[in-house]
Design a protein around this nucleic acid. Sequence first.
RNA 1: GGGCGGUUAGCUCAGUUGGUAGAGCAUUCGAUUUACACUCGAAAUGUCACAGGUUCGAGCCCUGUACCGCCCACCA
Length: 745
Amino acid sequence: MEPSKAPEVFLKPYDASDREPEMLELWEKSGYANPDVCIEKGITKPDAEAYSIVLPPPNVTGTLHMGHAAMLAIEDILIRYHRMCGYKTLWVPGTDSAAIATQSKVETDIYKSEKKTRHDLGREELMRRIDAFVEESKTTIINQTKKMGSSLDWSRYAYTMDEKRYAAVMEAFVRMYDAGLIYRGDRIVNWDPKLQTTVSDDEIEYVEQKDPFYHFKYGPFDIGTVRPETKFGDKYVVMHPDDERYAEYKHGQKIDLEWINGPITATIIKDEAADMSFGSGAMTITPAHSTIDFEIAQRHKLDIERVIDDRGILLDIAGEFKGQHIKKARPMIVEKLRAKGLISKVDEGYVHNVATNSRGGGIIEPQIKRQWFIAVNKAVQFPDGKTMTLKERMREAVDSKQTEIMPERFEKIYYHWIDNLRDWCISRQIWFGHRIPAWFKGDEVKVSVESPGPDWEQDPDTLDTWFSSGLWTFSTLGWPEETTDLKTYHPTSVLETGYDILFFWVARMILMSTFLRGEVPFKNVYLHGLVRDGQGRKMSKSLGNIIDPLTMIEKYGADATRLSLIIGAAPGNDVKLSEDRVRGYKHFANKVWNIARFVLENQHESGALQFTLQSKASGKVELLESDRTLVAEAQNVAKAVSENIDIFRLDLAADTIYHFVWDRFAAEILEESKPIFKGEDAAARQSRAAALCEILQISLKLLHPFMPFVTEAIWKELPQKPARPDDSGRSGGDADLLMVAKWPV
RNA sequence: GGGCGGUUAGCUCAGUUGGUAGAGCAUUCGAUUUACACUCGAAAUGUCACAGGUUCGAGCCCUGUACCGCCCACCA
């Protein structure tokens, strides 16, 4: 008996760079990433359960890095698995404007090439430049995203600054304002003197710094500071009420003393904020430039006076130092105090944390400013009738398990964040972003989407980028319109993202969704780890240890790149990635390819692949007992893989199928088959060939979510697509593309 | 200062309700035409950080210690 030939493509090793673009085109043409198409073609039942993920939108102006690649791989696995299982499956793509980052990038570029600042250009011109930059660079990230094999529904693409999302942001602001959740007030905020804008608490990064720590004689007290330049206005001495060292001083008592610019009268304040164990236990306060001092001042209704302006220049109160920049003034002030004999001691090398703007900004200077805030401690009524504060609601969402965070340990971190949450400052003084729908006329303020009249001026500020991001799960689905998409796909099934943005984003989406829709934005939060280099270091340009996903895709294929990010990556744990790892999985792709070749070369024994799944129904060929056992084994693997995916253990799922395919199917089952095919027993040959076909199919399906390209490429070469054994959910038999074939469980 | 995670083979890591220590990569030796050299087979390597405790039995549970990493925090 002559062996039938496998299709000729199998005579060469699998070439990912050759086949992947072809598969991408097949998928794109099919439209199967769009659930509406799947329903139309009878692949998905119209009343099937929905499964949806909204892609955390990458920065429009960025390029794809391994973190994105990991995110795309994980989400695509979940999506492809559920699509194959028959769910009405939607994965919504989008990009983010990343306001501050984008604006400062464009500003920097302009300054480099033209020596012009944004003020030279003006607001309109800068916006034009930014739009042009965004337009140019967004195709880059979109194309790179596609190369990973991400089965996103591009017909639903959203951009945070597009018309619909913009409208959603305006609507959200107005509704929250009307509900009394958004207010405008003078409060102490984080001011970035470099970027000239406020920054939210979460965007602050503490950087360790070494500075001299000065001890001053402040009347009878010893006070310390690293910032002498803020001390001009200090006229209150604060100490703990229980501090026995200062028992003789009474709250409110006045003391005359000599200070930087002459004699002043200081007032004693007893407050528990003073730490008895730190230094002398006594401190002076600068309420206008320190959050804690501001709070003390408010508690005791003390005077609050600004010392430093928005650019870091000393004000009138500094006397002879007025007009100086704080950096330059500091040594001069120290010198003067020293000359007056007011310095008692200097500790060089005092290590402390300095607040900086994590978005490439400067050192934060707390300032009192009139800004827009979201009140997190104010009780309001939610759409579902509940009345509570935002904080309480955010806690409840997770506490009640409406939203489950995985790995579970992150729930604690989430609670901790909420408990320490203060009112959220949402206005920014940068130009690129969503405008605040507030209108001013003299002292009057009106909040509305449209201008109230010709003589009203719009608030020049823009919104914190996370305000719009908070709406993302539902603004992408059409909110505020009550669209079919919104009803079908919200709350979304899973929010999958890196653990580093749990606070920035996840918590804010819960806030926005519960308030504006009365429901959580997602049922599950799955947090993946960070991708690091082979030695566990962060990937960075300066270390030169960046592994570029696109390079890996070119060299080893997207399938290999995906697997390298999945296998061995336990939920929430960082992944250490090396090129060797990616290479190893390329070998695996080729292995699968050759398994298919071997099976196809022997298919003549069973009268073509179509036999396999039909055999039971038609009764044409009876599998031998031993072969039935082998098929059952593959089916058990399918069960194990499914169970692991269901609990987000993609690493274990991938590991299971990997080892079954290589160590069991290829190494043992195929090897054992060789003598059978050489043998004289025709029934045994036929039965074995049929079993191998069956196992191959199961394997391809199980592998497909993890390595969609090579499996789809093999599927395409199957001489005859296997017909489906049953039609639960789909009318067209097993599909033309593996992407929508029925999951084998 | 508070919290979280980690410590298992040379390297990177699994080990899911406690039951004789595992994988990949790397190393060494060997093989080869009914798939695959992007292959196959075999070998070697471990006081599971340390010290106690619970248990018939602990990598796993409890207590403590050490080191590494991360997050949070307004010590002036």
